[in-house]
Design a protein around this nucleic acid. Sequence first.
DNA 1: TCCCTGCGGGAAAGGGCTTTCACTGCGGTA
DNA 2: TACCGCAGTGAAAGCCCTTTCCCGCAGGGA
Lengths: 354, 354
Amino acid sequence: MATLSDVARRAGVSPATASRVINGSSKPVTEELRERVLAAVAELQYVPNAHAQLLARSHRSAVGVIVHDVSDPYFAEITRGLQRVATDQGRLLMICNSYRDPDRELEYVELLRGHQVAALILAGSGYHDEAFTRQLNEKLAAYGATGGRVAVIGRHEHSGDAVMPDNRTGGYLAGRELCELGHRTIGVVAGPRILTTTTDRLAGLRQALVEQGRDLPERRIRYAEFDRDGGAEATARLLDADPELTAIVALNDSMAIGALATLRARSLAVPQRVSVIGFDDMPIARDVTPALTTVRLPLVDMGVRAMSLVLGAEAVSPRVEVLPAELVRRDTTGPAARAATGSAPRARRADPAS
Amino acid sequence: MATLSDVARRAGVSPATASRVINGSSKPVTEELRERVLAAVAELQYVPNAHAQLLARSHRSAVGVIVHDVSDPYFAEITRGLQRVATDQGRLLMICNSYRDPDRELEYVELLRGHQVAALILAGSGYHDEAFTRQLNEKLAAYGATGGRVAVIGRHEHSGDAVMPDNRTGGYLAGRELCELGHRTIGVVAGPRILTTTTDRLAGLRQALVEQGRDLPERRIRYAEFDRDGGAEATARLLDADPELTAIVALNDSMAIGALATLRARSLAVPQRVSVIGFDDMPIARDVTPALTTVRLPLVDMGVRAMSLVLGAEAVSPRVEVLPAELVRRDTTGPAARAATGSAPRARRADPAS
DNA sequence: TCCCTGCGGGAAAGGGCTTTCACTGCGGTA
DNA sequence: TACCGCAGTGAAAGCCCTTTCCCGCAGGGA
């Protein structure tokens, strides 16, 4: 690989001058030398060594991001928001997938710290795990102590800046909707119980049911992986245990899609026989048939806010921005069926999003 | 930030010894000194500066990956394959999204080269663009000349190692299937015509039709963005121009989902009135209703192969691995309707994947 | 004519790490 | 006893760049 001094030698200048030309330094350089340097760069196909640059420059610019999985639409949307702000400010993003493994999350904090990122954003549910939470907070504190900025998205265990989707209210909205539609036997297809996202959404849902004098017994909740297959499997278990369920709340849209698959496989009409509500409003939600009723979270906006917090002025006290959840009515919800079999088909609602 | 010499000073040893302990060097260090160093590391929360390490070490380890968009399921699957092999070999991946912008692709090649990656993988369709292709090849050649390894996935314009999905045969399979089902008026919902993926798939499709004595006139092809909205829009234009179409081939699954949305909005029954075939077999294809008939590509395997090529032994002559496409029959295809309205409903086919 | 100013350029000091090389003791062999 | 080899350690030379500091020089004012 050609180095800066190769370029300088070829152009007949000092490395200092070559560097100034290449980086567009404020120090003026004669037009003639400038051209010689640029010619040498082109001839040698010179590309500066990023590590050497980063080492020599003092100021840190890149931002580290840790998500569960970028290819999961939930995080893809958040990342889009993060990326937007970062690009505007000329920041490079280093994105890491923890695949919901707390240890990997800890490792990535170190890795990104080692890569001298100016800020760190952790997106995705926290864990009900004292030991892990303490360790993570220690690491983040150590990073913060050396001038690093930190923000989290969707996890409350961290003490610094945070952007929080209102999971609890979202769960509440889903529960209230089903109650108003007359459902009494409601099952829940939930993500891993160790995730705070699961328990928060569940708490809101339970609150709605309790307010209506109903109940949410543990036997109507099935915990599984937070993805399509987890949803399909949990739905099957739920139906096996309780065949006369009239409604299912899935704690995210991927699980809801799995739930729909199981219901279809068992020829249970949606929403005539069973209603389904998802959570997150991922793009695909409006394209499944019937279109999925779900709780929308402003995912892109969450990313935008988090990145803005972390790149903006430092606040004295940690800021917490709570972003609202909103019910999006589509076609997987309808009035509770009277009997186990049949009920009047319900008119398809117009979908404003399509 | 604490540095290595801080650690060394605190442990009362030289930086050399500290480095040896921290990196598990082969050179032996007394147990006592080792412990002192480790204690100092813990106390100071020391994390090595990755840039300094990368600069000081000669060997390169990370691998650069350029895709159109990781959050697109097509690339998410490929990336999963890349990741699997990379992780096995303890390699870090740097993933960049070009968002189908050729200039950005060029920039990322430089960026990754600057970051001293050991190898470079470009995934995603090539472009019908002489100038760009030449530029890219120059950059890749320059990189190769300094010892960098390169592999491409799904683009033939590069002269080195390549993994190629058999797009042409895939298109052919889709065309033959529709012909066998008796379709005569087939429309195509295509991606941007500048992408080789689009033209390859189209070529195979056309060949199938020609073999059956049919034709594929340009007016039955609509080019749009390679995503859901592009598919919806192209389908609408296609139907406006040719209301008696009985089949639509979408050149990827996202577009197929858009096509289904438009058909639903116009109350055209699938597959009774119009059949639809997608391409890629992304995970969601089996969960839409009706489940999508599509051409499967071994996406994960493509990633695995590409990474293996690039990390394995260097070959004298460039290797090209062609991976087969396969038709997956689900529920969006059926016999051509006789008249514009109505036809016997077709029994739902069992879906082996669900 | 002299001094000051300001411009254009280079020398050199880092930035934090790895690794070679040289050195010090020590046990063991001739 | 003299010497060799080796384990364990540290000094110092890089890795490639940026940036400060300094120097020479030309032009302008006194």
